[in-house]
Amino acid sequence: MQKIVDKSFEYLSKLSAILVLIVLVTIFWVLFEEAKPAIEAFGIDFLTNSKWAPNLEIFGGAPAIFGSVVSTFLAMIIATPIAIGIAIFLTEIAFEKLKTPIGTAIEMLAAIPSIIYGMWGLFYFAPIIREWFGGNGLGLLTAGIVLSIMILPFMAAITRDSMNTTPDILKESAYALGATKWDVIKDVVIPYAKAGIIGSIILALGRAIGETMAVTFVMGNVHKIPDSIVNAATSIPVTLANEFTEADGDLYYASLFYLALILFVISFVVIATAKFYFLRKVRKEI
């Protein structure tokens, strides 16, 4: 009797572990199956066609892909230097007493649901962009900045964790030779933590490209490649969030799934690269 229970417990737990794999494979398969009509109709040209006209049953993913790439790129350019700065501040500059509260505060920023960033962006940040840069305040620039604020704490926290892995003895040896803090940071800490820092940046990139709610509010949802980054645009998650429930017609529906599949593949590749190529050593909770 006990043997049966023992074995069933083992199989049950093994089954749960396998379930994770099954879900991942099923997601790929279902997205592909649902996207099939669109894949057959538009093929690979879907990626470059910029016309999105549901009434004509013509669908091209270029505006959404363009928006995703540009908003993510903007977010990365803004967030990366600041996140590294924060990490340097937290590991090398701040007094012991300040490290924990500021570190905690930054991690709290990472816990705030992304929809709150989006709402704040719509009501408080978009008007500022409108005033400073023109346009109606909604568009790639606003989306990129709101996105950068959203990934900043996440990026800073893992960058800090990788910098923290530098052994004190290496740093102390450099100080003993008369190095300044900056010398130590650039010649000891950053080379030592390089893989972890790059990994955290790529991981943040993976988060940013799939992020929906922080950008849906401020993107404007216009299916056109905009002339300027202050004009309204769209991105893959924004298109999905706004149009999924309205999609009528099989081809419309399939095209949205095509976009979802593209997004899933991109983020899968990005996250896998970050995790398995760079972050192997720094296996840390987040």
Binding site: V20, L21, L24, L240, F257, F264, S267, F268, A272, K275
Partner: peptide
Amino acid sequence: FANFIRDISDIMMSAPSIVIGAFVYAI
């Protein structure tokens, strides 16, 4: 096998949530 599942699970942890929504919609 266990390490493979760990990797898969790590990827799922960062998967775009909207795609999961689309997937569940379909099934």
